[in-house]
């Protein structure tokens, strides 16, 4: 019988390493390569290297920079709504009540639905012609038209994303609240702290770490949003809700301008990396402190 080797497991990793290289590394390298090329499917000339020209072009493009601005708006406002609402829901649920486990289970449900279905459902709900919501609002004399009114379109997107993802934040904060030692809260109660003072002085500081984690996860995910927004507004009215990802898809699939599309994808990637890096740093300081 041969000697048992501790590192025998290595060979079982080979398939997944190969898969990672083929599906992970290779495409990224290809995208990076493409971003330095002039490459349009229907252009007179074939693909050729043009250095940083694509990047220069997109930095100077009002269209692409507006898409970036819209994306930052979308991410920023959504984060504020979802973090605030998530914390509020967590605080409401952080107690024992009849049916508390049922409520917590219900809270998880939206998280299990794929974004494309969420988009489809919200579209059916909000369509100007047949949607339930515009019909009901019209009874009060309010017109709600996501196809025509920019503000309505944004409200729809924020609501949809908040509906879909706030539960995740709530669950993370709920876990954070549960891990605050009860004696800290009891001690504050005995010392005479009111509900708000307990929240502000005892619970909130203990939620910092999970809060930053939630923020990080949600931020990266918001940057990746595509299918549900595409389903709901397709970037409209006009281009008023055209996010970076929607723009990239339009460039790559409709305009088939691969070079600039690749450059814009990488630009979006850098944006996420820089913002995440800031948050991760914050997290490290929090943990080390």
């Amino acid at each position: 019988m041969s000697e048992t080797r501790i590192y025998d497991g290595e060979k079982y990793l080979v398939p997944s390493v190969i898969a990672f290289i083929v599906f992970g590394i290779v495409p990224v390298v290809l995208v990076i390569r493409t971003s330095f090329m002039y490459w349009e499917a229907f252009a007179a000339t074939g693909p050729r290297f043009i250095g940083l020209d694509n990047f220069e072009q997109l930095m100077n493009s009002a269209q692409y920079m507006s898409a970036t601005g819209r994306t930052l708006l979308f991410v920023g406002v959504s984060l504020v709504i979802q973090m605030g609402l998530g914390l509020a829901i967590a605080l409401l649920l952080d107690r024992e009540f009849r049916g508390d486990s049922v409520v917590r289970t219900l809270l998880v449900l939206p998280l299990t639905i794929p974004p494309i279905s969420v988009g489809a459902n919200w579209l059916l709900l909000l369509r100007t012609d047949t949607g339930l919501v515009p019909k009901m609002l019209s009874n009060f004399g309010i017109t709600f038209q996501i196809g025509e009114n920019t503000l309505d379109a944004w409200v729809a997107i924020f609501l949809m994303d908040a509906w879909h993802w706030t539960p995740l934040i709530a669950l993370i904060f709920l876990a954070g609240l549960t891990s605050v030692p009860p004696s800290l809260i009891e001690s504050a109660r005995i010392d005479g702290a009111n509900r708000w003072e307990i929240f502000w002085h005892v619970q909130l500081p203990q939620l910092k770490t999970v809060g930053v984690v939630a923020l990080l996860i949600r931020m990266m995910d918001l940057f990746r949003s595509f299918d549900d927004v595409w389903m709901l507004t397709s970037g409209g009215p006009g281009e008023d809700t055209m996010l970076l990802n929607l723009e990239i898809v339009r460039i790559m699939t409709q305009q088939t301008r691969y070079g600039i599309g690749a450059a814009l994808s990488l630009f979006a990637l850098y944006l996420i990396i820089i913002l995440s890096w800031g948050l991760v740093n914050m997290l490290h300081r929090e943990v080390l402190e």
């Binding site: 030692p181 800290l184 009891e186 001690s187 005995i190 002085h201 005892v202 500081p205 203990q206 910092k208």
Partner: peptide
Amino acid sequence: DISMVFQNYALYPHK
């Protein structure tokens, strides 16, 4: 109007 010392002291870690 009482004060209490807990077994685990219950000091606020961030203060």
